[in-house]
Nucleic acid binder design. Structure first.
Length: 164
DNA sequence: GCCAACGTTGGC
DNA sequence: GCCAACGTTGGC
């Protein structure tokens, strides 16, 4: 199982929008960057876990967790002339662009802001800091655990002290 | 809304 | 295949 960070502008599609879908599942379409496309097409697998990140807002942050429920398949919005993501170079035989399905899991008890991520020296190498424009990013397992800990999802090494 | 970073396009 | 021009992303 792999870990990922998916970026979205909440004004376009938010974590709550995913939660409010009838089956809490949604195709992750409209990605038009080749490196992100390669991840979606080749590497993202069913069962992979996703950090859901809100970008382009006053306080960008990881806000929740999602799960991949369908691996890469052709992005139909590229074939639809009425879609804002239409790509005249794409065709059924050569789709160019790919999407996956993601399902809502749970929100983080507290959002992990970009500011907090930047301030954590253990996260200095993640693409969010180094390659901020990449919209589909792999997350190392250690980084995954650190971010979940920062979000109040799991106990960090020092947080169990004093517990019953 | 500005603008730096960076990805893509297209002329040569 | 280089690289200038251009468009987009996304933090601030």
């Amino acid at each position: 199982m792999n870990y990922w960070l998916f970026k979205t502008e909440p004004g376009c599609f938010s974590f709550d929008d995913l939660k409010n879908r009838p089956d809490r599942t949604e195709p992750w379409d409209g990605v038009r960057n080749f490196q992100a496309r390669n991840f979606l097409r080749d590497t993202v697998r069913v069962g992979d876990r996703v950090l859901f990140y809100h970008s382009n807002i006053a306080e960008p942050a990881v806000v929740g967790l999602a799960e991949v429920t369908r691996s890469g398949y052709p992005d139909t919005t590229a074939l639809n002339p009425n879609s804002e993501h239409f790509d005249p170079k794409a065709s059924v035989g050569k789709p160019i662009w790919y999407m996956v399905d993601v399902s809502y899991l749970e929100p983080l008890p507290k959002s992990v802001t970009l500011e907090a991520i930047k301030q954590n020296p253990l996260l200095a190498d993640i693409p969010l800091v180094k390659r901020s424009r990449l919209s589909i990013q792999p997350v190392a397992e250690t980084e995954w655990h650190i971010i979940l800990t920062m979000g109040g999802m799991m106990d960090g090494p020092e947080m169990g002290i004093g517990r019953q």
